[in-house]
């Protein structure tokens, strides 16, 4: 057997990894609390008067906290798309010949079960970037529809932090009503279905990372923990 040498490549900074794990944790929170808000699936069995238990209110509180964290990380990630100190992701989204070829090559690798691996796997490839972009778009859609649902409760047009807040929410999210189908219920249904799309996305995401780690033999899972992976050094 010939000796294989490996080269270490940096892929994610500490900040990027923190964002990843914050997103992952709060997504779990958002799904658990969101399902409860959609249809309260457990009963409140506390023998206290209503004012003291606040079960739905806490679920909503955690749901909103998760949402605010997504808001902030989304802005940071949008910034990184253009100003990351690694290869800037937006460059991978431009459908030029190189990116299309790379996308095709990675996809082929996936469906031929790693028979053919004719691309550079040291950086975030085009396929990966497209896949992540889909996720961020889904998340943005969640933010806009979610904030639209939220602003219904601020119907007086005032809030504890001023009138600008509901105003900006209306300006920023009222378009979701006609886009999802014309009624407030459509916004809710769209918000709920998008959750399922995100769960499907996560299922494949986790699978793909594990699959890559096993078949590419480059320690891809380590990226999100230690920030780097190893690629085979072709001498």
């Amino acid at each position: 057997m010939k000796q294989e040498s490996y080269k270490k490549v940096e892929r994610m900074t500490v900040a990027m990894r923190s964002i990843h794990w914050a997103n992952a944790a709060f997504m779990v929170v958002a799904v658990i609390t969101g399902l409860y808000i959609g249809e309260p699936y457990y009963q409140t069995l506390i023998a206290e008067p209503a004012v003291q238990k606040y079960v739905m209110a806490w679920n909503r509180w955690w749901h909103f906290i998760a949402a605010i964290i997504f808001d902030v990380t989304s802005i940071v990630i949008a910034y990184l798309y253009f100003f990351s100190r690694f290869e800037k992701p937006y460059k991978k989204l431009i459908p030029n010949a190189h990116n299309l070829n790379e996308f095709g090559a990675v996809f082929l690798n996936l469906i031929t079960l790693n028979r053919k691996k004719s691309f550079d796997s040291s950086h975030s490839d085009s396929f990966n970037t497209v896949y992540f972009t889909i996720f961020h778009l889904l998340l943005f859609f969640m933010l806009f529809t979610g904030l639209q649902l939220y602003v219904h409760g601020l119907e007086s047009g005032i809030s504890s932090i001023g009138a600008w807040w509901p105003w900006i929410l209306h300006v920023g999210t009222d378009w979701t009503i006609p886009v999802t189908g014309g009624s407030l219920m459509d916004v809710r249904i769209a918000h709920h279905i998008t959750m399922w799309l995100i769960i499907v996305w996560v299922a494949f995401h986790i699978y793909y990372q594990i699959w890559r780690t096993i078949f590419w033999e480059e320690g891809d899972l380590a990226i999100v923990v230690g920030g780097s992976k190893f690629v085979k050094d072709k001498k």
């Binding site: 996936l110 079960l113 279905i193 399922w196 499907v200 299922a203 699978y207 699959w211």
Partner: peptide, 28 residues
């Protein structure tokens, strides 16, 4: 229902992943 629809999507994805995983293991 909305949830049945979502679960169906997830199941479809799960089946796809399962097939791919088994096929990869056999090919490997």
């Amino acid at each position: 229902t909305v949830d049945e629809f979502g679960l169906a999507l997830l199941t479809a994805a799960g089946i796809g992943i399962g097939i791919h995983a088994v096929a990869s293991a056999v090919a490997g």
